[in-house]
Nucleic acid binder design. Structure first.
Lengths: 227, 227
DNA sequence: CACATGATTCAACACTCGTTGAATTGGATC
DNA sequence: GATCCAATTCAACGAGTGTTGAATCATGTG
């Protein structure tokens, strides 16, 4: 088992397909088909190599899937951790908007990882469910802290349940990223990218009225996502 | 192709496994595995018969799946149609609560149909996606009318986008039914059934503040779901 | 050049899948 | 009891699956 996931120690020695390209292909196929239905042959075809090569870089189909997880989640966690820092004194609605933007930035072009977060793909693979939960829990814990801080600062309703608020905020953002690009262009004739942003603004507008101590306080200006 | 889905014309003649029992088994397996991964052998095992029997009652795996859809959605539509009747003059928040209750009543014990509504199961089966959309669209159209009526009656914000409001309301209810029974008991030590109801009330509370013309108008008393 | 070693492919394994045609059961009718 | 027919099972088909051991290719080093 070589499994040298890092770059090789010396010399360029070009490989035809490196593990990262395999992960790219795997992510695309897993996203389309789900963990069970996605075939290693389809992944190999997409990566342009033989199925057996996957077993040179990864122990099994499941190991390939785990590597896929570990590649993505830590980056998201780092962004959310920085945002949840207690010294951040910006208005709470702006910080909640930043939460939506982090999800947007990291997940908008990646239906595979969104399916993962929703736990769809792993149906029936017990070990993986726990692995995914372990990756997601610290992220939602950080977001929950933003609600706690908002209550302490008198910006949010004191009777708010931070756990449920976190659940509502991010669950809907996932649905917005998933569904609106496919639906809004047809029903409200908007371009797909604009559809997502329209949905996000409408959602934060509704959400903020729902959680604010004083619902009539207007939202601060919400910056567009960085390009 | 006998396919006599209705009861046979004369005499009791007990069958070992009737089509309805096959549908029950199919629904359970499709819910666990998804359309593609669910095997006819697993469905037959669950129904206690031979896989080939499925082909006596249904044309194919896909036909079995379609029959599954047609069995459920019309009942939901009828309830929502009755609720959306313009002569219903109850306060809008109460009618929105009834929407949540209809979803709760029809879907709480049926993860299979919830997956269907989310469109997860059908990934990659093009024809079925349209069939499902055709079943769901009239339901959401009715709910949208409730928002239109609420705006016209001066209970909801006139700048509300009914399409997005409908999307937010029912999407979150699906997530509540799916996720909270598994998560809340562990995180807030509540019994599972109470977890769903707690989530629904918290959600309508937040949602109502978000859409009401006057956010401080208190919610009317929300009846428990009928047993 | 010979050799070692990492990267890649080939061919095959045992298994499961949807589907089908023929065979079998079992109760109702003659 | 013989017959008919709906309900059910059996055995098999071709195709696709994850996985593996051996074989091949390409490259850097002695």
């Amino acid at each position: 088992m070589p499994l040298s996931l890092t770059s090789r120690s010396r010399g360029p020695k070009p490989t035809k397909v490196d593990p990262d390209q395999l992960l790219d292909a795997a992510q695309a196929v897993f996203a389309d088909e789900g963990l069970r239905a996605a075939s290693l042959r389809a992944i190999a075809r997409r990566a342009g190599c033989d199925p057996a090569l996957i077993y040179y870089h990864f122990e099994s189909k499941e190991a390939l899937f785990k590597a896929l997880l570990i590649r993505r989640f830590p980056a998201i966690l780092r962004e959310v951790e920085r945002l949840a820092d207690a010294s951040d004194r910006r208005p709470t609605p702006l910080r909640l908007w930043e939460v939506l933007l982090i999800y947007h930035r990291n997940l908008k072009d990646d239906p595979g990882i969104r399916s993962l977060i929703r736990g769809e793909i792993v149906r029936g693979a017990e070990g993986l469910t726990h692995l995914i939960e372990d990756q997601i829990r610290p992220i939602t814990t950080c977001i929950r802290q933003i609600f706690d801080q908002g209550i302490a600062r008198g910006e949010l309703r004191p009777d708010l349940q931070p756990l449920l608020a976190t659940f509502f905020l991010v669950k809907m953002q996932l649905e917005i990223l998933d569904v609106l690009p496919a639906v809004l262009p047809r029903l409200m004739n908007l371009p797909a990218e604009e559809a997502v942003l329209t949905g996000m603004r409408a959602w934060l507008d509704l959400f903020w009225r729902g959680v604010a101590l004083e619902p009539s306080t207007p939202l601060p200006p919400l910056p567009d996502p960085a390009p």
